[in-house]
Nucleic acid binder design. Structure first.
Length: 285
DNA sequence: AGGATAGCCTGCGGGC
DNA sequence: TGCCCGCAGGCTATCC
């Protein structure tokens, strides 16, 4: 369940390990994990960073990009169960099943491998000649990054929508980076019921919601993200934000604010947890 | 055209 | 012990 905080924490932990390293070999074990524009079969220079030197890592929403100093870029999406980690040379490959791609890296101070594993294969890799073409082809459809979102931005994108706010928050075209966990957490923090319709929210509520989204995401990044089952960072370490979830996964348990029982409902085919008292369906006048 | 729905995919835990 | 089922939810494709 990597959402924005997990991907951003991953970016931060991988950056010092990868930047400056030469990609001296790429082993793509499952060709169909390379998505988007068709790649040539031999992974020529630049394709999936092959033969390049890594310059920097970017993130937008839940999407990660690794950019080489010759300009080529690789897009990565972790889907539901994707993991990406660095392993120093000499260590045996743990969890070798479902490993779809391995990059051999060499730098002045360290040799090792970057490993992409994704059992459910909802994620994938994309290869581009430039970061601009990745942005144009892949990222153009995404809304503003959730870490930077403001009330007016949210209202501009969603204010006229007839959808429930919970569904709208998960729409990456409107807001990039929020998934089921942080949607529930942000709605609870903003005291907004998940079934409220977008076109019925006030300017003040949009502002409150945007602030809640930013605050929840920033706190989660600081804690290294939420490890529910699969997530690990670039060094294989767990994230600790799941200990601080106030509603996600806590249906039937007491609300931490009012001690009432937290409700669970399926909204847009996804489980949602919220507090009927703290997040009223009809806001107080 | 916006919005709802089905489908992709594997692992895990509960019930029997 | 082992099997079956439901659930987890990222996204895209398709339909209404």
């Amino acid at each position: 369940m990597p959402e924005l905080p997990e991907v951003e924490h991953l970016r931060r932990t991988l950056e010092p390990l990868l930047v400056g390293a030469h990609v001296i070999g790429v082993q793509l074990r499952r060709r169909d994990m390379l998505r988007g524009p068709r790649a040539d079969r031999r992974l020529r220079h630049g394709c999936l960073l092959n033969g390049t030197r890594i310059a920097f890592l970017l993130r937008h929403g839940k999407h990660l990009a690794i950019v080489s100093d010759c300009g080529s870029a690789m897009g990565i999406h972790l889907g539901m169960s994707g993991r990406l980690w660095f392993q120093p040379q000499g260590e045996r490959l743990a969890m070798a099943d479902h490993v779809h791609c391995i990059w051999r890296l060499r730098s002045a101070h360290q040799h090792g491998r970057l490993i992409f594993r994704d059992p459910r294969r909802f994620g994938g890799l994309w290869s581009y000649d430039s970061i601009d073409s990745l942005r144009t082809d892949r990222w153009r459809r995404l809304g503003p990054d959730a870490l930077q979102v403001s009330g007016p931005m949210l209202e501009a994108h969603l204010g006229s929508s007839a959808r429930a706010i919970k569904n709208a928050l998960l729409d990456q075209r409107a807001l990039a980076g929020v998934g089921n966990i942080y949607a529930d957490e942000a709605l609870f923090t903003a005291a907004i019921h998940p079934l409220r319709l977008c076109n019925a929210l006030s300017g003040g509520e949009w502002k409150r919601l945007a602030a809640a989204v930013r605050r929840v995401l920033a706190a989660a990044i600081k804690a290294g993200g939420s490890t529910i089952r699969d997530y690990r960072d670039g060094n294989g370490e767990l994230g600790h934000y799941a200990d601080r979830h106030r509603v996600y996964g806590r249906g039937g348990q007491p609300c931490l604010l009012c001690r009432g029982v937290l409700s669970r409902a399926v909204i847009g085919q996804r489980s949602s947890v919220f507090c009927r008292q703290c997040q009223p369906a009809v806001p107080a006048a």
